[in-house]
Every structure is written in C-alpha cells, then in structure tokens.
Design a protein around this nucleic acid. Sequence first.
DNA 1: ACTGGATCCTGACTGC
DNA 2: TGCAGTCAGGATCCAG
Length: 273
Amino acid sequence: MPELPEVETTRRGIEPHVLGARIRATVVRDARLRFGVDPALPSHLQDRQVVATSRRSKYLVLSLDSGADLVLHLGMSGRLRVLLESTPPGPHDHFDLELTNDRTIRLTDPRRFGSVLWAPAGFAEHPRARGLGPEPLTASFDGAYLWAACRGRRVAIKQLLMDAAVVVGVGNIYANEALFMAGIRPSTTAHRVSKERAELLSAAVKAVLEKAIAAGGTTFRDFFGSDGRPGYFVQELQVYGREGEPCRNCGGLLRSSRLGGRATVHCLQCQRR
DNA sequence: ACTGGATCCTGACTGC
DNA sequence: TGCAGTCAGGATCCAG
C-alpha cells in the first residue's frame, strides 16, 4: 500500500511517541510476515531506548541505543498505529512494541507483505538495504542521474521509475502522477527519454512526493496515518484512479492500460511521447 | 545484465 | 444473497 509519502507520514506520526522511550515488551502474534520475524527479536529489543527515527526507501527505521536498528516495512496493506491505552488486538494485528511511556506501536497487516527486520549493525548494512538506489528527495537524484540510469534500458519509463535500484520510494500511484506532471507517456522506452525530459521527470517526481507528504499521503483504499487520519493527497491525484474521466489539464480522455502488470493511467493528449 | 512473469496473502468489489 | 473472478499502493525470485 504505502509508498514514500505514506511511510514518511507514518514516521512523522510515531516519532513524538517513540523518541527517547524504552521498549518494555515486544509482542509477536504472527511471525509469518515477509521473511519471517526473527524469534530472538523480543530479547534484542528488551529495555533498549529508541534514539532516532528515519526512513530509507519505504523502510521505517527505529535506531536503538545499542547501535542496532529495528526496521519496519508496511508492504501493500500494512499500517502502524500509536495506541494510548490497552486495546484488544484484531485478527491482523501481528506485532506490538510496548513502550515505557505507556504507548504501544501496533503493526496491522492483512496481507502480511510487510516485514519486521532486525539490523544489528544498522540498516545500511542489512541485505535488504543493499542495491537500493538514491532517495528521490535528495540532490543525488536529478535529471542527469535519471538520464544516465535510462541508458541501455528497454523497459517502459514507468517501470524504470518504480525500480528501487534506480530510485527508491516511487510506487505505482506516484509513478503515474509524476509522468503526467512531466507530460511523458508511461510506456515510452526508458532509453528514448531525452536529457531534457529526464530533467522534467526527476523534478516531477520530487514535486509530487513533496506535495503528497505535505498532504499526509494518499488514502486511496486503506491507508491511514498513525493517528488514524487519512491522507488528503487523493484529492490532488491527476490520473491515478481517474481512468475514463476527463484530464484536468486539457479535458481529454484519461486512458487506462497495464504496464508490468500494474494499473497505468495517462492522458492521450498531454502525454504523447 | 536485463526483462517479463509468477508469487507471497487477504479483503473489497464486480458481475452473474 | 451467494459465489466466482478480478484487482490491490510491494518486492523477490526465476527462467529465458
């Protein structure tokens, strides 16, 4: 479910509750998440203090006073909530972090595509962090970089944007939106995107992600922030979920298709090449 | 090395 | 109302 803005919204939501707190107990109700939860995790976490929160790609990182990181990924349907009082667990509440400040951080994930990872030497050293491309909101992701990454690539530009080895955090919704903003047809072969258009596209990726973070993410189906509030960027979506409706820019028809098995929507007029 | 397709899992929605 | 089929915001693995 969540792409970069939703993970960042979640991180900002839980940070005030976890920073400086110690972990009193860890409850693993179902270890059958992606990769399985390390059975030794509760003992690793016991009495450790959370000293920082951060985000890398779509991973949410809680750094501990031991130098290790607890890493959470929300997969397609995952959600983190801050509970202020004891709340009976629902059927998909797989993981709780009980803190000394009486808050509980609860991971809910019906599809169990999410993961809870233990990174004893920090997430940067974890196998899942290896091979990740640059963060889209940093200076290392720009038009020149994106254009270079397109050399020799015969995949559609949309699929390249969603490749975490090229740039992280861009999932299906924001790939669709960024391509619309840049006026590029999603099916265009990556190596045919000019330097100038790669510049436009990298800027569009940054702009759409920044706007989405400011709006608290996108609630299309079931994303909610850690405080239970939806993300309001859904109101600003230009193409995703709007197939068959008129383009907000030119009034033309928004056409849906599939690329790499993923729903793709673009404007026949505004995104011609 | 790159590419497309299958795969993990459950819930919501559609059409008959 | 019931049931089967389809689809979903992610990421990995595998065969060609």
